[in-house]
Design a protein around this nucleic acid. Structure first.
Length: 737
DNA sequence: ACTACGAGACTTTTT
DNA sequence: GTCTCGTAGT
């Protein structure tokens, strides 16, 4: 057997892996071994001599997926994956643009703007253009620019038949000019710029076309129009594209994903056969049957039916709660009993449609002393202290970066107010130079003592010192010399921020250790922009996993609680309405944007439900509440239509088992059996919502809010005489009353 | 320059 | 209900 890694593949998987050199579409259902097929295909191509590592291009959407692919590949083959082009669309485009920055019309050290950098750039631009932010909300401008770029359109190519759109178009054009001036590039620009580069420069295009004879794409259903055109451009006459995707799991149309790319791909690349991977290795039969039945209500599917060689398993448990609190109490109880059965907390997920729903669930889990982890907070590189530090570093790397300068010129405060900033901006505009340059000129202009001049001196000194230092030490120095460390040392909530800044130094050390070829500051900044880091919360801690259904895509759990199955919530009311892009077209904007109608929206919600169901391996709970607190008032919801679309015989109602009341939910922790307490990762907490407490300094109070678990657990206490305060349970000496 | 208060939003999100 | 953002006030 020359290819040991083909072992254990089912016939369809094997057929996909060993396909001849031709473009192919692999319709890979949830839990059908998609990633395995993709990586094994690459291994097979290399091992069989059909491809060299050099000639393979593999694209994913997330860094996580790219990393996993590389890890699996190096486990299968003794090759150096370093030189291989495996990465995200943005990562690969970045690589292309760095290599050919001159041809692309970019400075060698172009910086990458993340969404929040982009938003501030837009706000700044609107101010300087005197555009009314009321009429043209920065967020909407951002959406306009990004979705245009995602469609492959530059400002001048946008169809604008009305004054509103013409103004948008104008801002778009000015925005691109500003970015060009400042040597920065936003995410969509990475794609568009490299697309334009390849389509303009035929020699370059042919070079890459000849090189990449094998192009493999993961999550193909999530590609947007520009990404697909980019792929088409890279695929030369001798190339074969191996596209893996699942139209039923397309849940990102709202950010430009175009499922239609799958059918277009079949046509454009004369795909001979679509290989369907329908055998599911994850879930029991009932769960798959429910998913199949549900998704059957969608139209225009490529068509696919999941099956398993395992039994049907348990029925899906359906719980009807009176209120959202009762729903949460039920989940707490069931989580406990799952734990008694020996299911690890990490193998239990609580899913919801929108983030706002997590609050009630968190409260209940907290009160019960169950450890939990909420996905979807701020990410490491998005924290303000990190962004500040990075802005200093960006200024050191490239002084044209006005956005970076504006972020830190007066942080920490050094007496540079709005007035002096305006002067600086005027001076820069007049002479057509960057803000930094203008600041330096102020220095030469005589009044050497100005705060702005001092800032320029400080920065110049920082740059001088950093020169020649190893990366982590550069960052360490900048954190100190900029006054950031000093500033946070003096702040009451600063300890955590200081810790994060320290972590940034560690991240740089890790980056240096991992990247042999490029240790430069610019490379690290790129890394920071392109990989915003893990979602917060300590990994590895045994905790129940709370996340949105979107965030759960690609994951699996022994038991899944799928909550809030109410009309308006899931399917979400906004999804079945006109979308934002249609609001635009109502204002006579171009029809080129993804004009989605209600049924598209509803079908995407259904796919979302499909994704949610297929996360569960063994046990699936679906719940809904007759009423819940939403936007500050009670809402009475109808049962989601999706429940009608799951065959009744697969469902088992469990709501009559016990009466859950709010009172019970708050006090369950106290009546929990000792056995639970002992085996629990975290002891049952005596702290919960409504608990009367006493604090040595602040006196008597009541717990009105709580969050986190384990060492990070905090409670908000309303004191009789000392106001409300957040207290860390680990440190605060609270006594229950 | 920092705090305080009111207005308005509020689906999902990676890069 | 709760959070963010921007402006006004000290």
């Amino acid at each position: 057997m020359p290819y040991p890694f083909l072992h254990g593949l089912n016939p369809e998987q094997r057929a996909a892996v060993t396909l001849p050199h031709e473009s192919a579409l692999i319709l890979a259902g949830a839990g059908s071994g998609k990633t395995r097929v993709l990586t094994t295909r690459i291994a097979y191509l290399i091992q069989s001599g059909q491809a060299t590592p050099h000639g393979v291009l593999a694209v994913t959407f997330t860094n996580k997926a790219a990393k996993e692919m590389i890890a699996r590949l190096s486990a299968m083959l003794p090759i150096n994956t370093r030189g291989m082009w495996i990465g995200t669309f943005h990562g690969l485009c970045n690589r292309l643009l760095r290599t050919h920055h001159r041809e692309a019309g970019l400075p060698a050290l172009f910086q990458i703007l993340d969404s929040s950098d982009q938003l501030s750039a837009i706000k700044r631009l609107l101010k300087s253009l005197n555009v009314d932010e009321e009429k043209y909300p920065p967020k909407q401008v951002q959406h306009f620019i990004n979705s245009s770029k995602d469609e492959g359109l530059r400002a001048e190519a946008v169809e604008a038949y009305d004054p509103f759109t013409r103004q948008m178009q104008e801002v778009f054009a000015e925005y691109d000019k500003q970015c060009q001036r400042e040597g920065v590039v936003d995410f969509a620009e990475l794609l568009l710029r490299s697309y334009e580069l390849l389509s303009r420069d035929s020699a370059l295009r042919e070079h890459y076309q000849n090189r990449f004879r094998h192009i493999l794409v993961d999550e193909f259903q999530d590609t947007n129009r520009l990404q697909y055109r980019w792929l088409k451009l890279l695929a030369g006459p001798g190339s074969a594209m191996f596209a893996v995707g699942d139209d039923d799991q397309s849940i990102y149309a709202f950010r430009g994903a175009h499922v239609g790319n799958m059918r277009e791909f079949e046509r454009d690349f004369a795909v001979k056969q679509v290989i369907k991977l329908e055998q599911n290795y994850r879930s029991h039969g009932n769960i798959l049957d429910a998913a199949n039945a549900l998704i059957h209500h969608n139209s225009g599917r490529l068509g696919k039916n999941l099956w398993t060689s395992e039994g049907s398993g348990e029925p899906i448990r359906l719980f009807e709660a009176t209120t959202d609190q009762e729903e949460a109490a039920f989940i707490v109880d069931e989580t406990r009993s799952l734990q008694r059965e020996g299911i690890a907390f990490t193998d239990i997920a609580i899913l919801y449609r929108s983030n706002a729903q997590s609050r009630v669930l968190e409260h209940a889990l907290f009160s019960a002393g169950l450890p939990y982890r909420v996905y979807g907070g701020l990410r490491f590189f998005e924290r303000q202290e990190i962004k500040h530090a990075l802005a200093y570093l960006r200024l050191i790397a490239s002084s044209e970066d006005d956005g970076a300068l504006l972020r830190v010129i007066n942080f920490p405060a050094r007496g540079i107010g709005a007035r002096s900033l305006e002067q600086l901006q005027d001076a820069a505009r007049q002479r057509g130079v960057s803000l930094y340059e203008a600041a330096c000129m102020k220095l030469l202009g005589g009044k050497g003592g100005t705060a702005i001049g001092n800032f320029a001196v400080m920065l110049e000194a920082m740059r001088e010192t950093c020169h020649g230092l190893p990366l982590p030490e550069q960052i360490e120095h900048v954190i100190e010399a900029s006054g950031l460390a000093q500033h946070y040392r003096g702040e009451k909530e600063g300890a955590e921020r200081l810790e994060n800044l320290n972590e940034l130094v560690n991240a740089a050390a890790g980056f240096v250790a991992e990247n042999e070829e490029d240790h430069s500051l610019a490379a690290f900044l790129t890394h920071a922009a392109l990989e915003s880091g893990e979602r917060q919360a300590e990994a590895g801690v045994a905790a129940v996993q709370l996340m949105t259904v979107h965030a759960a895509k690609g994951l699996e759990f022994h038991a899944v609680f799928l909550t809030g199955l109410e009309e308006g919530l899931f399917p979400h009311e906004n999804a079945a309405k006109r979308s934002f892009s249609e609001d635009l077209s109502a204002q006579q904007v171009s029809r080129n944007y993804n004009s989605r109608n209600e049924s598209d929206g509803l079908e995407e919600e259904r796919r979302l439900m499909y994704v949610a169901i297929t996360r569960a391996r063994r046990r699936l709970y679906i719940s809904y509440a007759q009423s819940r607190m939403l936007h500050g008032q009670f809402r009475y919801g109808l049962v989601s239509r999706f429940l009608d679309e799951i065959p009744a015989q697969l469902l088992k109602a469990v709501n009559t088992r016990r009466a859950y009341t709010e009172a019970q939910s708050a006090w369950t922790s106290l009546s929990a059996p000792a056995a639970v307490r002992r085996s629990s990762a975290a002891p049952d907490s005596p702290w919960h919502f409504g608990q009367n407490v006493s604090h040595p300094k602040f006196g008597a109070g009541v717990i009105i809010n709580c969050e986190g678990s384990g060492a990070d657990a905090r409670v908000e206490v309303k004191f009789r005489n000392a106001g409300t305060k957040w207290l860390a349970l680990e440190y605060a000496k609270l006594t229950a009353m």
